[in-house]
Design a protein around this nucleic acid. Structure first.
Length: 800
RNA sequence: GCGGGUAUGGCGGAAUUGGCAGACGCGCUGGUCUUAGGAACCAGUGGGCAACCUUGCAGGUUCGAUCCCUGUUACCCGCACCA
């Protein structure tokens, strides 16, 4: 009887659905487990096998949790706002709503074919107005608390998508969506003040269990540095030029200052500056460069001295030149630096080019060759002379600066405020009204959701205007405050908005009165285990942690950190070892695999491919190996005889239960499956197994290959679902074999193996080892100096 | 440049974290059964005739190193003139 997956798999999927087998129960007295995966963007291409791997890990874990008696919440939804859908709509004239619905349907059907155990009654869609009502609500709460602001800024602008991009979306100077070159453009931009939460986003990492590399990436992204702000007097001007430095200890070595080309002091003191033409020309040149060019062309320092303004070194009293140069950024620190060419390589390069003095203040390097950035004895530094410890010098200098009122300790972050708007149609409308008399007025809460107007033209306006700006009925409104004529904001939110809180909506997806019921939130949160891709570790994870902390501050949620634990899976590469992409034509469609081999084979193979956290190439032949494995399990049903247990096989079962149980927890799915394969081999060697043993086996297999497991489980006479049956337990004593194979070494080289009773002592083991012919021969004529014994492992004779 | 990671048979990968390197699977070789097999099953499979050699490369520590230390090379992923 061959296994007919085409008939059996849909059969069980239907039963699971009818019995609501995977429904999470609010307030169940069982222990709760909230397992989360990153919800997909429903693209027109449908799912690829990478999705199966991304969800497969948590699928196995949550299935095991259910069998262990947990009340499990394992939901899925769709992060459906976004540019690809909108671009497709523009191209075809089809409404993004229709495109999205069709794509979601496609994804849903693919997901159900694979047999994932998502709770079908908690699906969320970020583009549903009942969902984005609450995205807008959170935005308004942030607006209320002063976390939303507008500013003119040079923004990353994609001329092709006609949209403003965040730094995160334009890495490497390329648009994240269409990969064309990004240019700089001055625009009024909405910002969320995420920097206000920078320190809490950093310290919060101490209270969660993230993989070390994930944690490290977030730490780097936040980029905290400590140092000092120092005010430099400017000659010819009643002005203090404030700089930020991490090395206040080197202040005596400051021989010039540099400000960013955009620094406002230039326009303020235009009258005192003699070479405005030269400076303006330089600034114009810088403005032409994109941020990318500016940071990539590291080779040569450029800049212009400001003729007419100079600074005063506050500790030496010496007059020092001020330059503008594009190696200083307006967006970090104060946009002005003190330059210490002797001990900073960038300053050194600049000083060499412009012939500026280089004053050594730390002994230890050769400053005729390059800057010395290590620590050493302080020299030429007044009251700091003689100190050798960097931290002490920094502390002494900060004390001095504070006392004199010319500086203070300071902290800086690399993280910038979050540019929070797009000039696009397919996003959440920003619920703000611009009133000529009242200014920015929030849309009243009872008018939420502010719906996207139903239109048929989604082309963005020229000059990066939102398509919404063309719709008079949407734009023109009355001010909720004074009732006068007013205009609506026409920008929409970026795609990151909806995904910043979706895990909360799963808890109460249909709630009309709140983003989710507080008691339900209290029951389910935090997410116990969140798995996803490394590419979302910085942006999505930091944004959503920020939103969650904000919701905590306003009392909307009860825990400060949303994710108790975070892991990440590795990519599935194409059969050619390259990253899967449509253009390379190496994408594997899960539907094809399900058609040919069935969902269980697909699921098992994807988990077996290799280390879950690492990238691994797809291999069609290896898929067949997993099919063979499952076919052999199916055929094992013919080996069920009531002849009783054999001791050896029983022990193998206990070992396998132990290994599969612990491997799943460690996400070592590949070795868990390998252990089951080994057990199958043992069973065939043994020639038979009992029906109880078969029952244990299919319960172990169930998280990986649930359809076949259910079918065999039912064949064994069970009336309940295997998916909800009790997870097998093991007896530690029975995992240990009565005899062990001990390796015998002479001087660390393996000479023989000897069978011994488990747990035997050194004396017995040594004499048994000596009794071995090969060992005896090798030791003949030698003196044993030392015997090394590791119980049940090794006997090593050190001899000469 | 800084941060993180990886390197093991023909291939994907194991190795209780210092104790028999190569589990498990693929592939390959031979066989059985077949009209046939790209099906199934059985046997073998790191290299070398051997002693021995073998975890990117070179050293070190140790009775013993894939694992720890030092140096080095290659590749991957972040961040990048961050003061």
């Amino acid at each position: 009887m061959t296994y007919d997956f085409k008939q059996i798999e849909p059969k069980w999927q239907k039963i699971w659905k009818e019995q609501k087998a995977f429904a999470a129960v609010d307030f169940s007295p069982k222990k709760k487990f909230y397992g989360l995966i990153e919800f997909p963007y429903p693209s027109g291409a449908g799912m690829h096998v990478g999705h199966i791997k991304a969800y497969g890990g948590m699928e196995v874990i949550t299935r095991k949790r259910r069998m262990e008696g947990y009340n499990v919440l394992f939901p899925i939804g769709f992060d459906a706002f976004g540019l690809p859908t909108e671009n497709y709509a523009i191209k075809t004239g089809m409404h993004p709503r229709k495109v999205t619905d069709a794509n979601i349907e496609k994804f849903t059907s693919q997901l159900s074919r694979v047999g994932f155990s998502f709770d079908p009654d908690r699906v969320v869609d970020t583009t549903d107005h009942n969902y984005y009502k609450w995205t807008q609500w959170i935005f308004l709460k942030m607006f209320e608390k002063g976390l939303v602001f507008r500013d003119t800024a040079l923004v990353n602008y994609c001329p092709s998508c006609k949209v403003v991009l965040s730094n995160e979306d334009s890495q490497g100077g390329k648009c994240d969506i269409c990969h064309s070159d990004v240019v700089q453009k001055s625009k009024v931009v909405w910002y969320l003040r995420i920097t206000k939460y920078a320190d809490r986003l950093l310290t919060g990492l101490d209270s969660v269990d993230y993989l070390p590399n994930i944690r490290q990436q977030q730490v780097n992204w936040i980029g905290k540095s400590t140092g000092a702000f120092v005010d430099f007097s400017v000659s010819n001007a009643d002005e203090k030029l404030r700089i930020y430095t991490t090395r206040p200890d080197t202040l005596f070595g400051v021989t010039f200052m540099v400000i960013a080309p955009e620094h406002p002091i230039i326009d303020k003191y235009r009258a005192s500056i003699h070479n405005c033409d030269e400076i303006d020309a330089y600034r114009a040149e810088c403005a032409k460069k994109t941020e990318f060019e500016r940071t990539q062309l590291v080779k040569e320092k450029t800049g212009v001295r400001i003729d007419g303004l100079s600074g005063i070194n506050p500790v030496t009293g010496k007059e020092i030149p001020i330059y503008i140069a594009d190696y200083v950024m307006m967006g970090y620190g104060t946009g002005a630096i003190m330059a210490v060419p002797a001990h900073d390589q960038r300053d050194y390069d600049f000083a060499k080019k412009f012939g500026i003095d280089i004053v050594e203040v730390i002994r230890g390097g050769d400053i005729t060759k390059e800057a010395y950035t290590e620590s050493g004895e302080m020299i030429n530094s007044g009251f700091l002379n003689g100190y050798t410890d960097k931290q002490t010098s920094i502390k002494k200098m900060i004390e001095y600066l504070t006392e004199k009122g010319i500086g203070e300790e300071g902290v800086q972050y690399k993280m910038k405020d979050w540019a929070f708007n797009r000039q696009r149609y397919w996003g959440e409308p920003i619920p703000i009204i611009h009133c000529p008399t009242c200014g920015m007025v929030p849309v009243p809460y009872d008018e939420l959701p502010l719906l996207l107007p139903d239109v048929s033209n989604f082309e963005p306006g020229t000059d990066g205007e939102s398509p919404l700006a063309k719709i008079d009925l949407f734009v023109n409104c009355s001010c909720p405050k004074c009732g006068g004529a007013a205009k609506r904001e026409t920008d929409t939110m970026p795609q990151w908005a909806g995904s910043s809180w979706y895990f909360l909506r799963y808890i109460d997806p249909d709630n009309d009165n709140a983003l989710a019921d507080k008691e339900k939130l209290k029951y389910w949160m935090p997410v116990d285990w969140y798995n996803g891709g490394m590419e979302h570790v910085t942006r999505h994870m930091i944004y959503s942690r920020f939103w969650h902390k904000f919701l905590y501050d306003i009392g909307a949620v009860d825990c400060e950190e949303p994710y108790a634990k975070r892991t990440a899976q590795g990519l599935i590469l194409g059969p050619d070892g390259e990253k899967m992409s449509k253009s390379k034509g190496n994408v594997v469609d899960p539907n094809d695999v399900v058609d040919e081999y069935g969902a269980d084979v697909l699921r098992t193979y994807v988990m077996f491919m290799g280390d879950y956290t690492m990238a691994a190439p797809w291999n069609d032949n290896s898929v067949k190996g997993c099919k063979r494995f499952l076919d052999r399990i199916w055929a094992m049903q013919d080996l069920i005889h009531g002849t009783g247990v054999t001791e050896k096989l029983e022990s193998e079962f206990h070992k396998t239960v132990k290994k599969v149980s612990s491997d799943i927890e460690a996400m070592k799915f590949n070795t868990a499956i390998a252990a089951m394969m080994t057990l199958v081999n043992e069973i065939y060697d043994n020639g038979s197994l009992t029906s109880d043993e078969m029952g244990v086996f299919v319960r172990l297999l169930c998280p990986f290959a649930p359809h076949m497991s259910e079918e065999i489980w039912s064949n064994l006479g069970n009336k309940t679902l295997c998916s909800l049956a009790e997870w097998p337990t093991f007896d530690e004593a029975k995992t240990q074999a009565s005899t062990v194979t001990v390796a015998v070494q002479i001087c660390g080289k393996m000479k023989a193996t000897v069978e011994m009773p488990a747990g035997c002592d050194q004396q017995t083991a040594v004499s048994m080892a000596r009794a071995n012919d090969k060992v005896a021969a090798a030791l003949d004529g030698k003196t044993v100096i030392k015997e090394i014994f590791v119980q049940d492992r090794i006997v090593n004779f050190v001899a000469k």
